[in-house]
Design a protein around this nucleic acid. Structure first.
Lengths: 186, 186
DNA sequence: GTCTATAGCTAGATAGAC
DNA sequence: GTCTATCTAGCTATAGAC
């Protein structure tokens, strides 16, 4: 019996969850295959470049997520800045499963992942910073202040994810989300 | 010709630097041996329990660093709180090489490292939080405020290290250190 | 206590059937 | 497009000489 084609989205979600939890070196082809519902050889059919190509695909997937769910939301001049932020934070809260899941950029910004994909990671983070910087200017901050506020928001998301993970509690992350929302109140 | 015994401190520093950069799964015995100046078999002589025992030793080493360089400093009632903080932050700045090096707890709180050493990591972080909480109370904050300030300081150190690493700049980390110092000013 | 040499296994990657 | 079977390299770990 012929197997049905596994969708690109299923595959990317599977790969993403393993790379987030294990990082580049820690993610084995066996785990990646299991998480996608494919066998190893089938994964290589989809990604002839092997683990490197899978990682690149996941980073591209993440970048499109940032553009759609953060950048486009925070720069949407048709809605009030406060509303934009609420929506973007809801998206961020969802993608990190309320603080239970780790950030892909953090997992890949060490070991071999950093050596191979440092540029892609930096680009994704800059997109994130730029999004919050636009929001800052939309609430009347000058350029430098907006940049600093964007960095601070990124730091609080990342740092609180580290703390939440280590403590096994979503409280630090939830708290950070609230704090970010308050910072942009007009 | 007989080889001189390699000191425990040399070994721990070598192991530490590899585990920080590569995480648990990413750290290979060949790299660990090279970083310590020993051959693989000699490392096994020192750590019969293999990589797991090496990791545990590095985490214990880090815990003693936290106790000596953060906890004991921040809780030293013989000096003014402002001075304690300045000294602890100088130690923190040094151990992270001004923001160029990653935190051991972050590197090990993913992949197999988290599964094996989650408890040790949590314990070390709690020691860190407790240290800053004591400082908060020393500058007159109530217990809850002191706890929140400690968490915020930890978050800013960790988050700014993620950002500094990804951007290849020490600026976010230096900025975070300054911000923490300001927060405790009386 | 350190070394060379190697065992045993699992990793990433490939060949070829269906 | 997916699969089973397999290759080779690198991994963790051990044996035994000095």
């Amino acid at each position: 019996m012929r197997m049905a084609k596994v969708s690109d989205l299923e595959i990317l979600n599977g790969l993403m969850s393993v790379f987030r939890a294990k990082g580049y070196d820690g993610a084995s082809l066996n785990e990646l295959a299991e998480a996608t519902g494919l066998k190893k050889a089938s994964l290589y059919h989809r990604f002839p470049g092997g683990k490197k190509e899978m990682t690149a695909a996941v980073l591209d997937f993440m970048e499109s997520w940032v553009i759609n769910k953060v950048y486009n939301v925070l720069s949407d001049a048709k809605i009030a800045p406060t509303e934009r932020l609420r929506e973007a934070l809801a998206n961020i809260n969802a993608v990190y499963n309320e603080g239970r899941e780790v950030c892909l950029y953090r997992s890949l910004s060490m070991d071999t992942g950093m050596a191979l994909f440092g540029e892609k990671i930096e680009k994704g983070i800059n997109q994130w910073l730029e999004s919050f910087s636009i929001l800052g200017k939309a609430v009347g901050k000058d350029k430098d202040t907006a940049t600093q506020m964007a960095k601070q928001s990124f730091i609080e998301v990342q740092g609180s994810l580290v703390l939440s993970k280590a403590m096994g509690s979503t409280e630090p992350f939830q708290n950070a989300i609230q704090q970010i929302e308050n910072r942009y109140k007009t």
